[in-house]
Amino acid sequence: MSSTPDNFEPRIVAFLCNWCSYTGADLAGISRMNYPANVRAIRLMCSGSVKPFFIMSALHKGADGVLIGGCHIGDCHYQTGNHLTKKRIPITRELLGALGIDPRRVRLEWISAAEGQEFAEVIHEFVKELKALGPNPLAGGDHAH
């Protein structure tokens, strides 16, 4: 982790909720906002359908960071989907930390459909943070499969 190559570009897997965060990311694009091209967005119907196993899987398969984007609390299209997310992510981060995987690699953000600017800022920040953290030591796993 200490030997971070200068040209290290972190790969971020972003699980975005269809109703808010994905549309927010879309807005950032339509509004031609600049943000680093390190994000691979995966659209899900709700941030509540992001199982912690997906986050672990993304990290294991080589993502340097995982972003979970959902609607603000109270705005969930399915009423309470993001309440589940809100409870899961801190537990997931605690588990990752205890296992020796930096929990700062997992980030939960509430981004509404109108917050394109917010989305761009989050990506800027996250990329900066991940560059400081360096490449994910789990990348590639122990076995190729």
Partner: peptide, 15 residues
Amino acid sequence: WLPPDFPMFHFVHFY
């Protein structure tokens, strides 16, 4: 596969 990949197998059970 043995041993299972760190830390996938155990992560699932822990979580």
